[in-house]
């Protein structure tokens, strides 16, 4: 009878399933952001509704990942990189769940905007959505594929999104002061870009978790960076 390493195999199978669930959750969160942003920008309420409906699967995966992580720790007592991977993945799943919630909130603002006549300022949301989407894509890749360089680059990338958000906010305030007719639209846009800006912050958190997973270094709140 060949030696099958059943316990080792069970551990590896559990880790592989755990990783697949996180990857799937990341893809769903990214897709929900895309659906919500396009639903708003294309004035397509069906896309907004899909983003809202698909959030249920993200919520289910968040609970599954937490349950699996606790079970793997309980059963196999992992140490070192596997241990960090489980702890960090459970934090990332929380971040992805928040991101998907922000996408749902964005979709709800989109539905409101779609019920009123279009205004040109809406299109200015697009560059912010594209920045957030690219950051999230790279954060998920950096974490799931273990890409340290990509994670380190993400730490400074959120600045561009923050600056664009600040500038757009100032412009919306000016527009509201000058033009009370569209205040409802401007408020909805203001909320929409706030949700997008928060997604950028959460992507940075995922990059920090990727760095912790890969190097055991906690770089949050000004901690020293690992050599790239």
């Amino acid at each position: 009878m060949p030696q099958q390493n059943l316990i080792l195999q069970a551990n590896e199978d559990a880790m592989a399933a755990f990783d697949r669930d996180l990857q799937r959750m990341g893809e769903l969160a990214l897709q929900n952001l895309h659906l919500a942003a396009e639903g708003l920008l294309q004035r397509n309420t069906d896309l907004c509704n899909r983003a809202i409906a698909d959030d249920d699967e993200v919520d289910r995966l968040e609970k599954k990942i937490d349950r699996s992580g606790v079970e793997i720790i309980t059963r196999f007592g992992p140490v070192a990189s596997n241990y960090r991977r489980i702890i960090a993945s459970m934090k990332v799943s929380t971040a992805l769940e928040r991101i998907s919630d922000h996408a749902v909130s964005l979709a709800r603002r989109g539905r409101k905007l779609n019920q009123r006549p279009p205004i040109p300022e809406t299109e200015n949301i697009r560059p912010l959505a594209e920045l957030a989407s690219a950051q999230l894509r790279d954060a998920i890749d950096a974490f799931c594929q273990g890409q340290l360089d990509k994670a380190l680059l993400l730490l400074s990338r959120d600045t561009a999104l923050d600056e664009a958000y600040e500038a757009f906010t100032q412009r919306l305030v000016s527009l509201m002061e000058a033009n009370s007719e569209h205040v409802k639209d401007y408020v909805d846009i203001l909320f929409a870009i706030r949700f997008i800006e928060r997604i950028g912050d959460q992507s940075t958190n995922i990059a920090e978790d990727a760095i912790y997973q890969l190097t055991a270094m906690d770089i949050r709140h000004g901690g020293p960076l690992p050599p790239s």
């Binding site: 390493n5 316990i7 080792l8």
Partner: peptide, 10 residues
């Protein structure tokens, strides 16, 4: 220990 545990599992 590891190999006996594997055997028991089998």
């Amino acid at each position: 220990i590891e190999r006996i545990e594997e055997l028991i599992t089998e």
